[in-house]
Design a protein around this nucleic acid. Structure first.
Lengths: 221, 221
DNA sequence: CGGCGGCCGTCAGCATCCCGTCAGCGGGAG
DNA sequence: CTCCCGCTGACGGGATGCTGACGGCCGCCG
């Protein structure tokens, strides 16, 4: 059972991660909103524990974007005690439960279990772009109904573009996403990767915007 | 009719054991979570009476691990009176009924009988994957009609994959499930285990997704 | 108590595949 | 036309996963 913990404070992140691990969850930790957004979009989590004060991208914005993209995994929001404004905003954004800080780890684990159990039977939806389906839950991709076997890098590239469909993604951003670090490698490596990916999923999906980057067009536009 | 009673308080364990024995059950007693987990995983019980406050491993964690491994025997949870949180957690974790402490032995026996009777009418669903049948209730596996003898680890691996068929399970998650802790051991141990399991159940059941993990494909997809 | 068999972690060798790199080519923009 | 960005086929190093073999550990039985 995988859980994403979004928390920029290293000490709290470590405590929460330890408590959830001890409870039998597999825990991934995100330290900023950008990374959390991408992970929640591309990976399959049974639960997200979300702190609101985040660098790079606000926690509530992350949650809103997930919901706008159709992601339905349960989200447990950590709020400052008494901050009922945040709580209302969280409800509007689609949070499932709240925990005021500071909290006891036992309570966090208990609520996490309850949310996971309640959400059982609500499968995460796949992302559909034209006749291409990216299913993060199964880590599988299919085109026109027939499955396509992708390598890890190819899958991450396609997933990232699919979640940013309609936007032109610069090559540098893609390289950074694919390799996690800011290691500026040879651009041709990305081009070769795109070529191999295109050969597998067929033409008409990933388009090149010369001088800008790559994109998956949104809708019939 | 075998019953597992998981209770660390010797006096309560003796009382419950006596009452259930008088009712015609054969009673095994576990005093800590580790032992209970192992017994519930390897033996076939018609019912488990589970106390939550346990040494070595929390009762609810034990229950969750049983369910994750595909064990479906009815579980009756003993909770502290008024502990509404524990009740919710227990039911969410897959408990079939609960009984607040202190309780009268007649009520325990009545509920135990009801659970066993209800479970008898609903045989545990076997998981069928091609010509391989995994029966969680009997902890048995057969292929093309003939039984296959698996070791405990092999069975748990197969049961977990079958329970999550259709999705790609990362190696780390499998290791965690198999060993209960977060001990990140040598990955080759898992590969060797998969190899031995494949040799027993034949090819075409467990597939490898290089770079992602292992999966049992769901249906024709 | 000692042998024994099953279970499972470890190791080494090998096959396979991923992916970065290179060289050459084509096509759009100025 | 010329330049330059991007595409593609080929290649090879290295990572990933499979397999046979071995040995430690534990329970069982003589």
């Amino acid at each position: 059972m995988r859980v994403l913990c979004v928390e920029d404070d290293p000490r709290i992140a470590a405590d929460v991660g330890a408590a959830l691990s001890a409870a039998g969850f597999v825990v991934d930790v995100s330290r900023d909103g950008e990374d959390a957004w991408f992970r929640g979009d591309t990976e399959d989590y049974a639960l997200v524990v979300l702190d609101l004060g985040l660098p790079a991208l606000d926690g509530l914005s992350v949650l809103e974007r997930w919901r706008a993209a159709g992601r339905t995994m349960p989200v447990l929001v950590l709020t400052a005690r008494g901050s009922w404004v945040e709580r209302v905003r969280g409800i509007d954004a689609g949070a499932d439960d709240y925990l005021p800080k500071p909290f006891r780890m036992e309570e966090l684990v208990a609520r996490a279990r309850a949310l996971v159990r309640r959400a059982a039977g609500h499968p995460a939806p796949a992302i559909v772009v034209g006749d291409v389906v990216v299913d993060p839950r199964r880590t599988s991709v299919s085109r026109a109904g027939s499955p396509v076997s992708l390598s890890p890098l190819e899958y991450r590239l396609l997933a990232y573009l699919a979640h940013h469909r309609g936007r032109v993604v610069p090559a540098g951003e893609l390289m950074e996403q694919l390799h996690g670090d800011d290691d500026a490698r040879d651009q041709n490596a990305l081009e070769a990767l795109v070529a191999r990916l295109r050969r597998k999923i067929g033409p008409g999906v990933i388009e090149t915007r010369r001088g800008f980057g790559y994109t998956i067009p949104d809708g019939p536009g």
